[in-house]
């Protein structure tokens, strides 16, 4: 027997019955179902019932309003798409502005309060060497003196601990008090220096 002449079993027919009733089967398959239904009159009657019930359902168009409600969807979608597309052009600006602001704040907050003295004037090994020679703690005036010596290229002089400086610091009321202090200190050490 050829495949197309074989009738369907009841289980197979049940799977195909709705499609058969609604005309959703290809012609060859529909003919085969029709032949098979002669063996199962109850299923044939059910197929007829389904056809009538759903024909009436189609007349009532239960999905009609969905069609109508979705009709203008394309207009809304395209408008929104264009709006969002326009916003995309500004997206980088919107992202970069806060980043730039944050960067500016960080730069202002982290930069040193005064510019460092230019280091290229100093031989690279000397500050290290000088720093190693400094005692652990120095009174202010002695530190000032050491700094002046170091600035003038004078090797540090070993001082016995507790020895007083040869000069007394003046009251720092004048604008040039710092420089004057330095001169006094250098003078006390027999170093010739001139005010700028």
């Amino acid at each position: 027997m050829e495949q197309s002449e074989r009738t369907y079993s009841r289980a197979e027919l049940e799977q195909l019955l709705a499609d058969y009733a609604f005309g959703q089967l290809p012609p060859e398959e529909a003919q085969r179902v029709e032949r098979s239904l002669k063996l199962y009159p109850d299923l044939a009657a059910e197929a007829e019932l389904l056809r009538h019930v759903f024909a009436r359902l189609d007349e009532l168009e239960p999905m009609r309003s969905l069609e109508q409600r979705s009709r203008n969807l394309s207009v809304h979608v395209l408008q929104r798409w264009q709006r969002e597309g326009a916003r995309q052009h500004w997206r980088w600006v919107r992202l970069l502005l806060p980043a730039a602001g944050l960067g500016l704040l960080l730069w202002l907050g982290l930069r040193p309060p005064h510019p460092e003295p230019p280091l290229h004037h100093l031989p690279p090994s000397e500050p290290v060497q000088q720093a190693e020679l400094l005692p652990e703690t120095l009174p202010f005036s002695e530190g000032l003196l050491t700094f002046a010596q170091w600035s003038a290229g004078i090797p540090p002089v070993a001082r016995p601990p507790g020895t007083a400086l040869p000069v007394t610091l003046p009251a720092a009321s004048a604008a040039d008090s710092l420089w004057q202090t330095l001169l006094l200190e250098l003078e006390a050490l027999n170093v010739e220096a001139a005010a700028p």
Binding site: M63, R69, S70, L73, S74, V77
Partner: peptide, 23 residues
Amino acid sequence: QRFVYSVAYRYLGRHEDAQDAAQ
């Protein structure tokens, strides 16, 4: 549009929601 709208409507059950979802 009709296909997407009707699927969304079956899940959401409200016209406004289905419109939003479809967009």
